[in-house]
Design a protein around this nucleic acid. Sequence first.
DNA 1: ATGTATGCAAAACATTTGCACCTGG
DNA 2: CCAGGTGCAAATGTTTTGCATACAT
Lengths: 141, 141
Amino acid sequence: MEDHEGLKKTGLKVTLPRLKVLSIFENSKEKHLTAEDIYKEMLGGGDEVGLATIYRVLTQFEQAGLLIRHHFESGKAVFELHDKAHHDHIVCLQCGHVTEFVNEEIEKLQTKVAEEHGFRIIEHSLIIYADSIKKPCNHKK
Amino acid sequence: MEDHEGLKKTGLKVTLPRLKVLSIFENSKEKHLTAEDIYKEMLGGGDEVGLATIYRVLTQFEQAGLLIRHHFESGKAVFELHDKAHHDHIVCLQCGHVTEFVNEEIEKLQTKVAEEHGFRIIEHSLIIYADSIKKPCNHKK
DNA sequence: ATGTATGCAAAACATTTGCACCTGG
DNA sequence: CCAGGTGCAAATGTTTTGCATACAT
């Protein structure tokens, strides 16, 4: 719960909306959330907050390195905590659940390919859209 | 130029805006275009067209399998022709130019990783955001 | 003819910004 | 106290939709 530490280091003031946003990311079962998701969660929890604040806080947290912003195919931005190591994503086409994975070989190959084309990787995004082999998938129960 | 064939097969009527959109994708130097890009190109070429039509045509072409829609980090959707084999993308952070590449090893590893997690890949998107080693980069000259 | 396509304007979304008020340090 | 944060409403930028007209077959 002591998010004060991480927050303070960013130079941002420790305010209620900011603590609440972090707490939602930490306690929610779904680790990948949109601004709207968080807004609804906070309203449901009885907090008085504006959607604009959520957007501002999410952007600040992204710039501070606390969150990562993703652009999946939904048209809305999705955020997740940036506390773990880098990883890529498998999006389940049945239920939308996001599975994380890391594959060092793929990482190395990317660096090699980029070099061959005269680039140095700053960042990358690998998203696999897939059917679950088990039907129905039970990711979200 | 004979796009009539591909178009007819989709069941869509062969109209001027549709032919023109295909022609732009085929003749443009930049292969990855936004709706706005195409709109401006058509206006500049003296065509009378509505932006709404562009969006409708792009969406229909995507559904028909003639185009692929990408969501890079720009907030706008980017389209490209779907005639070539599958490939991934390197986005140049200096100029925005998109370089295409294929790496069979990466493809195979993805399939393997997906299987290990109980998935069958339907589609995937690998986007590398990178600095050009040459500065200034001369992709867009 | 007749069902589709189109252009325009208005609507629908996601996100950002201006501004007066509030609040953490 | 006061710089920075917040809520609200209005603005923005992208994409979609309703509708009357125009066009392909």
